[in-house]
Amino acid sequence: MRWLVRGAVAAAVLAGLLGLARVIEGGLMEYAQRVLLLAGINVILAVGLNLINGTTGQFSIGHAGFMAVGAYTCAWVGQHLAPGVAGAVGAGAIADAISLNAALVSGAVTAALAGVIVGVPSLRLKGDYLAIVTLGFGEIIRIVFNNWKALGGATGYSGEDPAGLPAWTTLFWVYAWVVVIITVVRNVTFSQTGRSLIAIREDEVAAEAMATPTTRLKVVAFVLSAAAAGVAGGLFAHLQAGIRPEDFRLEKSIDMIVMIIVGGLGSITGAVVGGVFMAVALELMRDLEEYRLVLYALLLILIMILRPEGLFGSRELSFGWLRRKARGGEPAS
């Protein structure tokens, strides 16, 4: 019975999303839509990264590398899959949807594999050493793509068509994946695994003493978050119509960290807000011209000094929280 209700809820959410996407696409100028698309991609990145950086407390500053792996895989698979799919079901929205999602899944899988390769040796380390190792891996991945001639090298990959990769990244698909990723991450976070992950964050030695398989769980969280970055990369590739290694440099990883910091480490709600904030704030600050990035950096420092726990801390926005709030009680942390 329960799965029936859940299925109905999921269907309703997707239908609502489809309707909303249609309305927005009809009524909003493309610029605002682009910002919304980037915001959605950011949310996927932030929610995924938050699982490892926030919930588990293992800091990665190399996630741009996983995003790159996902983006390149997704772009390449999409290019090679699309003709076959179009041949089988006829070209059109359905064929595009099949190709996109198959490509995204393959991007997620390869990014997850990369996550295993990087995570297994790295996650023995802690704190800033782990951070630096992931930074190193992220840069190595970028350099490999930069020298990968078949994928365009420094010029990047945009398929055979001069107009670039097909524009499959629509509002509906981005936000459908946002829902999927948030659901998965939420379910992991509030499961027994999630409790163990938080235990690792709070005190790894104590967690180990309580027979928590810390290394295995850390790798699981790391791989999940790499897979989310891969999905985001694939969506980004088909939004940009082309990708190049420079799109995934260290700055991208830092942007992701800023997103989860602004919202509050360890909070899914915070990651969502941070992802949206990053996309919207950088665009709103355009009027500042060359002072924009100076202010962006200043903002980051000030948040760290004045409110290091971010906007939400580790609190979550949930119906229960809202109800308690309405009654005037203290929110549960």
Binding site: M29, E30, Y31, R34, V35, R244, D247, R286, E290, R292
Partner: peptide, 20 residues
């Protein structure tokens, strides 16, 4: 409109120039 040497921002910039 600034692109800060970033491809995503370049696409944003052109869209902004056209729409806004």
């Amino acid at each position: 409109v600034d692109t800060r040497g970033d491809a995503a921002e370049a696409a944003n910039a052109v869209t902004r120039l056209i729409d806004v």
